[in-house]
Measured scan of single mutants.
Amino acid sequence: RIEKCYFCSGPIYPGHGMMFVRNDCKVFRFCKSKCHKNFKKKRNPRKVRWTKAFRKAAGKELTV
Protein backbone atom coordinates (compact mmCIF):
# COMPACT_ATOMS: atom_id res chain seq x y z
CA ARG A 1 0.00 0.00 0.00
CA ILE A 2 1.38 3.40 -0.98
CA GLU A 3 0.90 5.97 1.79
CA LYS A 4 1.00 9.76 1.46
CA CYS A 5 3.48 12.01 3.23
CA TYR A 6 1.74 14.20 5.83
CA PHE A 7 3.95 17.21 5.04
CA CYS A 8 4.65 17.24 1.29
CA SER A 9 1.93 14.83 0.03
CA GLY A 10 4.54 12.75 -1.78
CA PRO A 11 4.15 8.96 -2.14
CA ILE A 12 5.68 6.65 0.48
CA TYR A 13 6.40 3.14 -0.79
CA PRO A 14 6.47 0.09 1.53
CA GLY A 15 9.67 -0.08 3.58
CA HIS A 16 10.42 3.62 3.12
CA GLY A 17 9.83 6.76 5.12
CA MET A 18 9.17 7.33 8.79
CA MET A 19 6.11 6.98 10.99
CA PHE A 20 5.70 9.43 13.88
CA VAL A 21 3.06 8.60 16.51
CA ARG A 22 2.03 11.39 18.88
CA ASN A 23 0.97 10.79 22.51
CA ASP A 24 -2.70 11.10 21.50
CA CYS A 25 -2.21 8.18 19.04
CA LYS A 26 -2.36 10.38 15.91
CA VAL A 27 -0.11 8.87 13.23
CA PHE A 28 1.98 11.04 10.89
CA ARG A 29 3.89 9.49 7.98
CA PHE A 30 6.84 11.24 6.35
CA CYS A 31 8.66 10.35 3.13
CA LYS A 32 12.04 11.78 4.17
CA SER A 33 13.75 13.36 7.17
CA LYS A 34 13.41 16.78 5.49
CA CYS A 35 9.63 16.56 5.90
CA HIS A 36 9.88 15.29 9.48
CA LYS A 37 12.26 18.10 10.49
CA ASN A 38 10.00 20.76 8.97
CA PHE A 39 7.01 19.25 10.80
CA LYS A 40 8.90 19.35 14.11
CA LYS A 41 9.74 23.02 13.47
CA LYS A 42 5.95 23.61 13.12
CA ARG A 43 6.28 24.89 9.57
CA ASN A 44 3.13 25.30 7.53
CA PRO A 45 3.26 23.13 4.36
CA ARG A 46 1.36 25.85 2.47
CA LYS A 47 4.23 28.29 3.04
CA VAL A 48 7.06 25.89 2.12
CA ARG A 49 7.66 26.28 -1.59
CA TRP A 50 8.53 22.68 -2.55
CA THR A 51 5.38 21.04 -1.12
CA LYS A 52 2.27 20.09 -3.09
CA ALA A 53 0.15 22.18 -0.70
CA PHE A 54 2.08 25.33 -1.70
CA ARG A 55 1.86 24.53 -5.41
CA LYS A 56 -1.89 23.97 -5.17
CA ALA A 57 -2.46 27.14 -3.09
CA ALA A 58 -0.31 29.24 -5.45
CA GLY A 59 -2.17 27.98 -8.53
CA LYS A 60 0.84 26.17 -10.00
CA GLU A 61 -0.50 22.60 -9.72
CA LEU A 62 -3.14 21.53 -12.21
CA THR A 63 -5.93 19.63 -10.44
CA VAL A 64 -7.99 17.14 -12.41
Rank of each mutant, 00 (worst) to 15 (best):
P14F: 03
T63P: 15
K52S: 10
K41P: 01
K40C: 11
F7Y: 09
P14N: 02
N38R: 02
A53G: 09
E61N: 01
K40H: 08
V27P: 03
R1S: 13
R1W: 07
H16L: 08
M19E: 11
R46L: 12
E61L: 05
V48C: 08
G17W: 01
G15L: 02
V27G: 02
N23L: 06
K47M: 12
H16Q: 11
C8Y: 00
H36P: 01
V21K: 03
F30M: 04
H16A: 11
V48K: 06
L62C: 03
C8R: 08
K26G: 12
N44I: 07
R49G: 14
T63I: 03
F7N: 13
T63V: 08
M18Y: 08
L62P: 09
H16P: 09
D24G: 03
P14Q: 04
G59K: 04
K41L: 06
I2L: 06
G10S: 11
A57Y: 04
K41Y: 03
A53K: 03
C5R: 13
M19G: 04
K52F: 09
A53M: 06
K37M: 06
K37H: 08
C31D: 00
F54H: 11
Y13L: 09
C35E: 00
K42N: 10
R1M: 13
K37R: 04
F7M: 12
E61C: 03
G59M: 07
E61Y: 02
H16I: 09
K60D: 15
F20C: 03
T51G: 07
C35P: 00
S33C: 01
A58W: 06
I2F: 07
P14M: 03
E61A: 02
N44K: 05
K41R: 03
P45S: 08
T51H: 05
A57M: 06
N44C: 06
C31G: 00
F54M: 11
M19F: 09
Y13E: 14
T51L: 05
K47V: 12
Y6A: 13
A53P: 10
M19T: 12
Y13M: 12
F39G: 02
L62S: 13
K52T: 14
K34N: 05
K52L: 10
K34H: 07
G17T: 05
G15M: 02
V48I: 08
E61S: 01
K60N: 13
V48R: 03
M18G: 08
